[in-house]
Design a protein around this nucleic acid. Structure first.
Lengths: 231, 231
DNA sequence: ATTTAATTGTGGGGATATTCACATTTTTTA
DNA sequence: TAAAAAATGTGAATATCCCCACAATTAAAT
């Protein structure tokens, strides 16, 4: 399933090209020393909740979900993102154990980076540390808002918001394949698969979207936005 | 309403005594230069959502709530904490604007610290930066779990969890004054004031708690824990 | 002390969303 | 290609929780 590329040269690593980190060659070597690039297929778990934190994971490309099993043994998707980005970072600094899982929603290339190199950079490159602090801060603030939105809005609104998120942020198109099953979509917006089906059915009847299995075309983005806003 | 103590010497600042930060006198001076200590009464706003981020705020003592107005113009309490702790930090690094408010739930002493001094320490004291990263990371992870818990559990369970939180973390006693009105309690656990009243009424009938206005005595902590766990 | 405002309690109707049971379709595996 | 498994669609009954209206109590202000 997995293909390990040994002696990964890191010469063209996405970390380097990612402008925010802006590392020079020497620093990139520090980071990539003892790093391993791994390919994941759609559906494969990249980080498993409950395992010990050993690595920082850099997702070079691919769509991933951050998700965790809640107190009622029900899975919930916290966030869906796409590379390039670091994942699992907060757990590495906060815990000895991963508090959430990361799973590939599309074929994904990820780089497992030894924590010590990352930590070295944090301590010896003030700019890198500040960039990390900024990223963590943005994540907190974003999640605060996402959480309140999810709590207060009704499901149709949260569903509409999710579609807009896919359309605008993940796929940058009005037409895309939902990277989730109905069950997962439920876990993402906080409901059951049946309710997801019903909302899709309602939206289709109202000619807001056109759905065929996982394929979605947004017909009326304005109304979708309005539904998302009204709550 | 507010009493400003000028020329705050910071000699006995709680930041210093807080072991995790472990700053020496010189660093404390950097931090406290241009800092102002302010007293807040119960109910007074310390940070207002929407205002520009100018200061790091250190709550020396007192109970505070972090809360924000959601998309439906409804307030939601994200977190209730007590000093000593820094508040509003993520916004300072992520935004130009505070994304949430901080309000005193009890009489509170807070120190407004100029951002530049704080930032200087982050960049020049690796340990301080790492401590900040650790704190931010813990906050994210904790909030992920709190959010999922709130989303998946029923209100009785979330209410029970809140009581246990007050009892164990905030007041460290089985008997305490709820620092919230019924409306605020609703905003905290994600419901209306009426539902809060009803849950309290049910719990009282079942002899789980004894309530007189804001005063609560926990009679059966085991059941409370069980209710919280079951969801 | 008296008035005013804010907070809290209570009940019932109604809306949103869940649960369950079963049918159907699609995907995966053998 | 056939069989098994997973995913999806649908409707009805049920549950949880919200909204509304009004009464009662407590706290704040004059």
């Amino acid at each position: 399933m997995r293909e390990i590329i040994k002696n990964n040269p890191c010469k063209d690593c996405a970390v380097k090209s990612s402008t925010v980190y802006n590392l020079d060659n020497e620093e990139l070597d520090v980071l990539c020393n003892n790093s391993t690039e791994i390919q994941f297929q759609k559906g494969e778990r990249i980080i498993k909740q409950g395992t010990f934190t050993q690595n920082i994971v850099f997702v070079k490309s691919g769509i991933v979900k951050m998700h965790l099993t809640g107190p009622i043994h029900k899975d919930e998707i916290l966030k869906i993102s796409k590379g390039p980005l670091f994942v699992g970072v907060p757990d590495v600094f906060a815990n000895k154990v991963h508090s959430y899982s990361v799973t590939a929603l599309s074929d994904t290339t990820a780089c497992f980076i030894d924590f010590s190199g990352y930590k070295y950079l944090v301590q010896n490159n003030g700019k890198f540390a500040l960039e990390l602090i900024k990223t963590l801060s943005e994540n907190i603030v974003t999640h605060y808002q996402r959480c309140v939105s999810k709590m207060q809005k009704q499901l149709t609104a949260t569903f509409a918001e999710a579609l807009l998120y896919f359309s605008e942020y993940i796929f940058e198109s009005d037409e895309f394949q939902i990277p989730l099953t109905r069950v997962e979509f439920g876990e993402y917006i906080g409901t059951t698969r049946e309710t997801v089906t019903k909302i899709i059915s309602d939206f289709t009847k109202d000619k807001i979207i056109e759905v065929n299995g996982k394929h979605v075309r947004i017909l009326n983005k304005d109304i979708l936005q309005k539904i998302s806003n009204v709550g």
